[in-house]
Write a protein that binds this DNA or RNA. Structure first.
Lengths: 218, 218, 218, 218
DNA sequence: GATGAATGAGTTTTCATTCAT
DNA sequence: CATGAATGAAAACTCATTCAT
């Protein structure tokens, strides 16, 4: 498993036409990865799917890992822009007055939507994470950020007397994020069952709220 | 050419000596898998590590997948024998009188112990699950059993008035199992941090208990 | 692991250069097959003989069988274009007036010439036929066509009163084709003796003519 | 394709029990060869089929080729004992007075019977002949003997005025033997059609008789 | 002898990456 | 830049034969 490595550095600017070809390759890569997984994807598949000559792939990317990284990057971009943090929420964006339970609920729903939209790629990302260290690191960072936001929200709620102060904000944020994340993974990727999504989401909300011991503002 | 059968499928060893060699191979396989992961393991590595000839591997296993399955089987055996179900507990083994919170706590600790003992292999199992369907299926089954046990425990507690009846036992069991499972994965496998395990375990216990709204028996 | 597709099946070369390499491989394959037989030929031999890299073979053919099929195809093409049917003749091409005995004689000679030209490959084709069913089928078809032509010629001669009507045209065509075919095989391939070819050919002609009871047109 | 080679020389005498085991192996070998062909037969198959330990095979035979030779030997034995020579007949066994046409007919029938009885092995023998020179030589010898007998019969008939003296006895014997041999091969081994055997045999008889120009004794 | 385990050279096939045109 | 051909290092798997018990 060749580690991703630096390579020639993807030449930066491009002609108009070159940029389009590059986009075609990225789009094709995503589709092929989703279809066959990272391991079973051949560079030839991507090139063919993009209707580009085999060799042209290497004009734009130094390796299979490189396109994957780009695809994953865009996905993370989409996941973080269109969703609140999993588990709790992204406080900065919300007026402090909003009721925590409602915010958790909203955050979970929007994370679910983003996950569903990207479910196939999430599976592949999981796959690549199991053997590519660089990639693991990237995920760790994303997770840390999102968990950090949740932890800070919990702290705020504790100071506001909405959440039991006996709770460890950092660890709880981690555990609850793990709960939501992995539940969605099993549900959407492993297709554990898939019917009656509402029941799942309601349960996630409820467990979150109860676990934090959220009570209505006094 | 399309020759038909071929594979002969190596049968169980018939002699003491054969059994010993087979064990050596399984042990070697586990060590090599743990060391390099499934994908980067070569049959040659396993054979060399077991100090047998290359071909001898194929006397006992038809493929790398086959030893892996055997190794994983033994691991699951160990995980289920030496642990209570993750998330809640394995009711049948416990006197009904035991207090739920204590039982959850005990279950989580023993699951943690088993996980820690097998952490490296758990990483590889995760890896293989991302591309081998047969293997995915095996895990799904294990998970379903364990979740089923937890769900039944929750139902019992609901009937005993210890757990809020507003909770969905099945979904909650799933979500809480996902929480514990994935937290341990991130902690022990991805090495998210690893210091201060007690804080993690205490948090898992607490969230579990609060999420179920467990109250002392009346 | 049971990955599904894989084989991509190498497509026809798209450039002049590719076409040339492909031809080189086919020519090399024929020479190596003739030299060592199908079973003892290694893909490595063919590639080396064609002065291309090992992997380049697989750019053009999915397997040893595949090149062999192509080589054999061209040989059959040569055998049928440059020869009359064995045993009797290919009526359509001949003015009906030609005397049967002369036509048989001519057909046998030209079949002999074609056989001699391709004798080495005929041996290999025989070899492959003994274990490859697809190939057997191909030969059966060729044989059936050629025998069919002979049988129709015999029928025509019967209607013209040149051949005894007591003869079964189909079976006779088969048997006489078998006689010519196998005699040439033993002679040219097994090298049964090889001297004095004329004596063999004269005998084949004579037996053919007498067996059919051909008499001069009335 | 390892040439047959000498090996340790199969130890000659045996205990009663050893002799039985050896027989079991020969019988098993024949069955397995018939079932799978020489190339796809593994020594393991033979041993298993004979219910003998893998290693025991090598107590009795130095190689796969060696058993095959023994099996083939017995088959040739059966073929020559129970049949007249193909094509013409085995004169020595017959009172000179018997009518040639009747003798040819009888010879063909009995050769057909023997061939049918051994058809599956004949296919395998053909297979092995295509790559094993020692074996080719053995067949050549058998063929030469049988053709020789036929040729001498033809000569006798010529001297008796029963067969046209313009015919070349040696070549004719060869060609006619090839006809019968190969016809039966295509019929019984390649399964060219298989129905209505009588039609085939009658045709072979008739062509033989006419080709030799046999006329009733004056 | 009989048994079945051990051996390892030999072959095919794959595919990311480089190059010639 | 585009194109598609060329490269060759891996890796898995087979199986006749030899050996230890």
């Amino acid at each position: 498993m060749a580690e991703t490595g630096g390579g020639e550095s993807p030449q930066a600017p491009l002609t108009e036409r070159g940029a389009r070809t590059r986009e075609r390759l990225i789009a094709a890569a995503r589709e092929v990865f989703e279809e066959r997984g990272f391991l079973d994807t051949r560079v030839a598949h991507i090139a063919r799917h993009a209707r580009v000559a085999y060799g042209s792939f290497y004009t734009y990317f130094p390796s299979k890992e490189a396109v994957f990284l780009e695809v994953a990057d865009r996905l993370f971009e989409d996941m973080t822009r269109h969703s609140f943090a999993p588990g709790a929420d992204s406080a900065a964006l919300e007026p402090a007055a909003t009721e925590p339970a409602a915010r958790i609920r909203r955050a979970n729903r929007s994370y679910y939507e983003a996950y569903r939209r990207n479910a196939k790629m999430m599976a592949i990302i999981e796959q690549v994470s199991t053997f590519n260290e660089e990639f693991q690191e990237m995920r760790r960072k994303h997770r840390a950020e999102s968990v950090g936001r949740s932890a800070r929200a919990i702290e705020r709620w504790q100071r506001a007397g909405l959440v039991d102060s006996g709770i460890d904000p950092e660890m709880s944020a981690r555990a609850l994020a793990a709960m939501v994340d992995h539940s969605l993974y099993l549900w959407l990727v492993q297709g554990d069952d898939t019917s009656d999504t509402e029941r799942l989401l309601d349960t996630l909300d409820a467990l979150n709220v109860r676990a934090l011991g959220l009570r209505p503002a006094p």
